[in-house]
Design a protein around this nucleic acid. Sequence first.
DNA 1: GACACCCTGACACGAGCGTGACCAGGTTAT
DNA 2: ATAACCTGGTCACGCTCGTGTCAGGGTGTC
Lengths: 124, 124
Amino acid sequence: MATLTINEAAAATGWSPRMLRYVEQLGLVEAPRSSGGYRLYGPAQLQRLRTLRELLTEHDVELGDVGFALRLRREPALSQALDGWFDAAPLRPSAVRDDADWLAFEQDKHQTLLTHTSHTRSSA
Amino acid sequence: MATLTINEAAAATGWSPRMLRYVEQLGLVEAPRSSGGYRLYGPAQLQRLRTLRELLTEHDVELGDVGFALRLRREPALSQALDGWFDAAPLRPSAVRDDADWLAFEQDKHQTLLTHTSHTRSSA
DNA sequence: GACACCCTGACACGAGCGTGACCAGGTTAT
DNA sequence: ATAACCTGGTCACGCTCGTGTCAGGGTGTC
């Protein structure tokens, strides 16, 4: 099967050769290699590079962000931890959740009072 | 209900007041305000700040990354686009997928050949 | 009303990211 | 065999991030 070298692929996709290597380093588009080590870009890679570019421009996303998304796919533990964190509490905070929270809060307060000589305030 | 001011919350969670404002700016932990505009940290916020810290240290994640994860939750279109991109092609590329790809590839190649006077190579 | 605290906004600065440019050496097609 | 191309590595530069600090002004408590 015929393939393009990195410079040809660059010309075909609008990326610079430098960026193609960088994108590969991020794990986003990895080209197979020739026996001598040259990157060989086939249709799949070209397509991927093009759609990647669209992703970035249309959604105002950085390469690093896509890299992080990749990390999320590869580390389910991380993804799960994030899910848990987001779901565990409302972003627009409402109020107290349960008694366990209250207990922890009182402990915090005392801890605070021990180190800093401060005082609480009444809410709005 | 009693709450802590930003300095007290900082002392209780280990963040600096500066960072609490920064974290809020990223949309990660937003504290309710007093009528005068003071941030009021309750147990929910303190808990959130603590677990956020754990997230960062235990998974070697940056604040910006969590911010991006938040963006993913708020922009389903973006999340979907990323999903599509990741699923559309294998990261460890294998070969051709279907004839449509081949067609696109030939077009690319010609486009390349038109602009640059280059040539194709045989694969490894 | 005095004093301590909080607010926003700005400047500063080291560290890391995205990107280009260059180099010495290996690969490929003719 | 030679010219053109590729490779990984490194230096450079501008930019953003995380973080501290300061200034000018408002808020809360006694």
